[in-house]
C-alpha cells in the first residue's frame, strides 16, 4: 500500500471517527456540570471506609481487583522488556566508556537532591491514604531519585549502589504482597481484596485498612519495576558496544 493510498484511508477513517465522536460527545452530560452519580457513590464508599483520599479508595478498595489487573500488566511488560533486551550471543559487554565530564554544579545539586527525592517518594507512598499520591506516584519518584546517581555521578556509581537483582526480587515481592492481601480477604470470606483490617479514624496516617498496605505493596513494585526497566535500557545504551554488522 503506497503512502498516498494510506493517507487517504486515514483521512476517511479519521473523519468517520471524528463524526462518531462528535455525535457521542453532544449526548454526554455537559462539561463541568454538577451531575456525577458515580462520584456520589464513590465518595460515600470512601468515607464509609475512613479513606480521606477518595482516589486511593477507588483504586485500592472499591476497584481493587482492577488495580490488581493493572499491576499484572505492569509486571508482565517489565518481564517482556527484560526478555527482549537480553544481550544476545554476538553482543559482548564492551564495558562503559570513559565517563564524560559532569559539571560541578550538576554533581553537587544531584547528590544534594538524592536524599530529598527519596524522602519525598517515601512520603508520597506512606501518605497515599490522606493526601494526593500513593504507591504508583511514589514508586516513580523513588525510582527517579535513585537515577540521580547516574546524572550526578557516573554509570559505575549507579551500578555499584543499585543492585538490579535486588530490585528484580523487590518487584516480585510487591506483586506477591498485593496478591496475598487479596487472598487474605478471600480467605476470611469477605471477598478478594476486601478491606479486612481495622479502618482507623478518618484523616489519620494509619487509616483506611488495607488501602495503606496495598499502597506500600504497589510502591515497592512500581519503584523496583521502573528501576529494572531503566537498568535494561541503560545497559543497552552504555554497556553493549555498537553492533558489528
Amino acid at each position: 500500500m503506497s503512502r498516498r493510498v494510506r493517507m487517504w484511508m486515514v483521512a476517511i477513517a479519521g473523519a468517520a471517527v471524528a463524526v462518531g465522536m462528535g455525535l457521542a460527545f453532544v449526548d454526554l452530560p455537559s462539561f463541568g456540570g454538577s451531575h456525577h452519580p458515580y462520584r456520589d457513590a464513590a465518595i460515600h464508599g470512601s468515607v464509609a471506609h475512613q479513606t480521606a483520599n477518595a482516589v486511593s479508595a477507588v483504586n485500592f478498595d472499591q476497584r481493587g481487583l482492577d488495580t490488581f489487573g493493572e499491576e499484572s500488566i505492569l509486571f508482565a511488560s517489565i518481564i517482556g522488556v527484560s526478555a527482549l533486551l537480553r544481550p544476545s550471543k554476538e553482543e559482548q559487554e564492551a564495558g562503559p566508556s570513559q565517563p564524560g565530564r559532569v559539571m560541578e554544579a550538576t554533581r553537587i545539586l544531584g547528590y544534594a537532591f538524592i536524599p530529598l527525592v527519596l524522602i519525598v517518594g517515601l512520603d508520597v507512598i506512606s501518605h497515599g491514604v490522606i493526601t494526593p499520591g500513593g504507591g504508583f506516584q511514589g514508586g516513580i519518584i523513588l525510582a527517579s531519585g535513585i537515577h540521580l546517581l547516574y546524572v550526578a555521578g557516573s554509570y559505575e556509581t549507579l551500578g555499584r549502589l543499585r543492585p538490579v537483582r535486588l530490585f528484580e526480587h523487590g518487584e516480585a515481592i510487591g506483586a506477591g504482597a498485593f496478591a496475598c492481601l487479596g487472598i487474605a480477604g478471600a480467605a476470611t470470606a469477605m471477598g478478594f481484596l476486601a478491606n479486612l483490617i481495622p479502618l482507623g479514624s478518618f484523616g489519620q496516617l494509619f487509616s483506611a485498612g488495607t488501602v495503606e498496605l496495598l499502597n506500600g505493596a504497589v510502591g515497592i513494585e512500581v519503584g523496583s519495576g521502573v528501576i529494572v526497566l531503566i537498568a535494561k535500557f541503560l545497559d543497552q545504551a552504555i554497556l553493549l558496544g555498537p553492533q558489528k554488522s
Binding site: 456540570g33 454538577s34 483520599n53 477518595a54 493526601t131 484523616g203
Partner: peptide
C-alpha cells in the same frame, strides 16, 4: 469528571 468550582477529591 470535572465540575466547575469543585475541589480535588482528597478530604481534610
Amino acid at each position: 469528571g470535572y465540575q466547575r468550582h469543585a475541589a480535588a477529591p482528597v478530604f481534610g
